[in-house]
């Protein structure tokens, strides 16, 4: 019994947050994108690309904040390719996302060589955002909870704030409502004289921004360098979180934290002697198995945005 209780120490929860932060950010990006009507399986590619540029920015200037900005901008620029391909070029959204993922892997591999003349991994950044850990004065002294939530690194705080901001954005602002309509009934929006194209671009760019944060988190906050394939399927778990969270930022937060928790737990379970009988690989498959279960049980009740994934062509007379 003690063994089980000892699992649930603060470390478990800090690792949970560690694992879930990039997934939460990417999932909110996915939510915004799909609410605007664009299916985005390129989250993985956006994250990979911005993880690389966050490191480039940090190494070039020595300042991780500039690295973060360059990572986010890279993510947004890269997301424009997806936006352009799906909105203006009327390419199938899933196909475009797949192409984005392939393109992102190739580009980063080549740029890695051109800029740093090494394959596989960059050098470590001189200063990472992890060194910017900030304890919020009074809150962090709350026992247990304070250590977990209020003694964190910058992007974790940004993640917490962005959940709130984007929930308000989607439900309480005019722009957010327009974004939602462009994913539900684009023709209605167009009749009002509001451009569906612009709204959809907005969704895609916001997802690029959030994936930029997620990618930067991986490379210059928890890690200190970029290595090939470092996103390792997180973008797809984020997609599962979008569905399991029923296309809302709060839902995405909950789903991602559950995935993060399971992932943190499986590392702990691996070292329990009683469970030594199972091969460790089964534990590392746990989060994926869980996300399938989540999808299996969540999807029936949740409904995707009606026009999500649908092409929008409008004949203008001007």
């Amino acid at each position: 019994m003690n063994e089980i209780l000892s699992l649930f120490d603060t470390q478990l929860f800090t690792t949970t947050i560690d694992f879930s932060t990039p997934i939460v950010l990417a999932a909110i990006g996915g939510v915004l994108c799909e609410r605007g009507g664009i299916v985005n399986i390129g989250l993985e590619g956006f994250m990979n690309f911005s993880a690389f540029f966050a490191v480039v920015g940090t190494i070039a200037t020595g300042n991780p904040w500039i690295g973060l900005v360059s990572g986010v901008i890279a993510g947004m620029i890269f997301s424009l390719i997806h936006g352009f391909a799906t909105i203006h070029l009327h390419l199938d959204h899933v196909v475009s996302g797949a192409v984005i993922n392939i393109l992102s892997a190739g580009l980063t591999q080549y740029l890695l060589l051109i800029i740093y003349h090494t394959a596989g991994q960059t050098a470590s950044v001189p200063l990472s955002l992890h060194d910017m850990k900030y304890a919020i004065p009074i809150l962090s002294s709350i026992p247990y909870v304070g250590e977990i939530f209020f003694n964190q690194t910058p992007i974790v705080y940004i993640m917490m704030i962005s959940v709130v901001i984007f929930t308000i954005f989607l439900n309480r602002t005019k722009l957010g409502l327009h974004l939602k309509v462009s994913g539900e009934h684009p023709m209605a929006l167009e009749t009002l004289g509001i451009s569906v194209f612009k709204m959809r671009y907005l969704g895609v760019i916001l997802s690029g921004l959030l994936c930029g944060l997620a990618g930067s988190y991986l490379s210059i906050e928890t890690g200190s360098s970029y290595s090939e394939n470092m996103t390792s399927g997180r973008g797809f778990i984020a997609l599962a979180a979008v569905i399991a969270g029923r296309w809302s930022p709060i839902g995405a937060l909950v789903a991602s934290v559950v995935f993060g928790f399971i992932n943190a737990l499986q590392y702990k379970l691996q070292i329990i002697p009683a469970l030594k009988f199972f091969p460790t690989e089964i534990f590392s498959a746990l989060p994926y198995i869980l996300s399938i279960l989540a999808i299996a049980f969540a999807v029936k009740k949740s409904r995707p945005p009606k026009a999500s994934g649908e092409d929008f062509i409008v004949e203008r007379i001007d």
């Binding site: 392939i102 892997a105 190739g106 591999q109 080549y110 890695l112 394959a119």
Partner: peptide
Amino acid sequence: HKSIVEIMKG
């Protein structure tokens, strides 16, 4: 380096 072909493929 052969990674130029990755870009090319993309």
